[in-house]
C-alpha cells in the first residue's frame, strides 16, 4: 500500500494544520497522526510516520517520539476489528479479566495479538470514561457496554457478518 492521503484526506489535513499559526504546523501532529492511522489501515507504519513528517515539514524522529508515547497509536498492524477492552479498576471489578480471557480463548489470541485471518485484534486499555457501563470495550468509534460472554459472542458474530457483507 502506497502511503498517500487522497484528496478528501488532504483537505482534512489542511483543515487541521490551518488551526495553528503559520510556522507552527507541528502542533497539528496528534490529529494528523489519527488521520494517518485511520487512512492507512488502522496503524502507523514507519512509512506513514515518515509521510506525516514530510507533510508537516519536520524530522521523522519528531513524529516517532510522539507516536510511540501514546497508546492509542498502533505501531503494529491491527485486525479489521480492534477490541480495546478496558481493564481499569471499575471494569476489572465488574469482570473485565474474564471478558479478556474469554475473547482470547474464543479467538485464540492473547492481548496485543491479531487473529491469523487478520480479522480481530485484542488490546487491553486503561479507563475509557464509561465506568457506569462496566465492563466495556471500544470497537471502532463505538463503545460496547455491560459486556457478558453472550454479548461478546454476538459482537464477534456481528463483525464476521459485516466483513462478509462488505467483501
Amino acid at each position: 500500500m502506497s502511503v498517500q492521503f487522497n484528496e478528501k484526506q488532504l483537505t482534512e489535513f489542511n483543515r487541521l494544520v490551518a488551526r495553528y499559526p503559520e510556522g507552527k504546523q507541528k502542533s497539528a501532529l496528534l490529529p494528523v497522526l489519527h488521520l494517518a492511522q485511520e487512512s492507512f489501515g488502522g496503524w502507523l507504519s514507519a512509512e506513514s510516520m515518515d509521510y506525516v513528517a514530510e507533510l508537516l515539514r519536520i524530522e521523522p524522529i519528531e513524529v516517532y517520539e510522539v507516536a510511540t508515547f501514546y497508546s492509542m497509536y498502533n505501531l503494529q498492524p491491527v485486525g479489521k476489528y480492534l477490541f480495546e477492552v478496558c481493564q481499569t479498576g471499575p471494569c476489572m471489578l465488574r469482570g473485565s479479566d474474564d471478558i479478556i480471557a474469554y475473547i482470547g480463548e474464543k479467538l485464540n489470541i492473547k492481548p496485543g495479538q491479531t487473529t491469523e485471518d487478520g480479522m480481530f485484534t485484542l488490546k487491553t486499555v486503561e479507563c475509557l470514561g464509561a465506568c457506569g457501563y462496566a465492563p466495556m470495550m471500544q470497537l471502532g468509534k463505538h463503545y460496547r457496554e455491560h459486556l457478558t460472554k453472550e454479548k461478546v459472542d454476538a459482537i464477534i458474530e456481528e463483525c464476521r457478518n459485516n466483513a462478509a457483507v462488505n467483501n
Binding site: Y64, E65, Y70
Partner: peptide
C-alpha cells in the same frame, strides 16, 4: 537523539 514511548518502556536513542 530523542526519547520514545512511555511508562516502563521509555527508550532513549536515535530514530
Amino acid at each position: 537523539l530523542n526519547v520514545f514511548a512511555a511508562h516502563n518502556h521509555v527508550y532513549f536513542g536515535r530514530d
